[in-house]
Amino acid sequence: MASEPQGGLTEYIQHHLNHMTVNFSADHFWFWNLRADSIIISFVLGAAFCLWFWLFARKATSGVPSKGQALVELAIEFVDTQVKDTFHGDRRTVTPLALSIFMWVFLMNAMDLLPVDLAGWLVHTFAGDEVAHHTYFRMVPTADINTTVGLSVAVLFIVIGHGIKAKGGFGFGKELLTAPFHANNPIAKLVLVIPNFLLNVVETLSKPVSLAMRLFGNMYGGELVFMLIAGLMVSWISFVPGVVFNTAWAIFHILIIALQAFIFMMLTIVYIATAREHH
């Protein structure tokens, strides 16, 4: 990839779009590539979220809350209100799920605000030039399609699980074959089984795809814009506009970060709520 003649910015961006990849299989089949950067960053952020919230949950008091507890409660109540408005049922598992999604996606998205060259600079400084040339590290796990697909497929399983739990295995299967097209006589029912099933499969599969692609597209695009702006700072002439654009884009990106996390959470709740509805 880096052999293209433009060099400069193109090479810079292409370098930045490479993942730190580990492959565990002997034949180096592509599926067994593991993007260590996505995994590490997302894991660290997830653990940070757990630790942060757990510390306040452990000594949560119903009396006057500390500022930290109030902040945590603010997040929880915000999520719980959204769940309450959309999903009418037992929220004991749904709200924690929504909270996890919101906080995790938010934190992973927020990595976009770190300077694009921070990881490279750290490697450069501590490991030297030679290592840096071969080391790839991307800071934003949600700009990796694997992360967003992993999340959305997990959400899909949860949604299906909610559907089965609400309607029973038989009811869920029956709905898969008899909705959305209803018929009264058995022959018409039999005829409609195939289109119903196909439609339901498409509908079900479109959910994780849209979830994953939306988040991935937004974060990938945002990261790419950051890289393009970073390209401005190569020259002293365009350095000042580069800083201005970078700041402007970062401020705008705060909105996208929160919004995408919110949308991912909201759609998950909506999917669960619709999965529990009887057709």
Partner: peptide, 16 residues
């Protein structure tokens, strides 16, 4: 799409 996706799914499950 590679193994990372499975890893992220597992991480997510643990987190939830």
């Amino acid at each position: 799409i590679n193994m990372t996706f499975l890893g992220q799914m597992i991480s997510f499950a643990i987190l939830v």
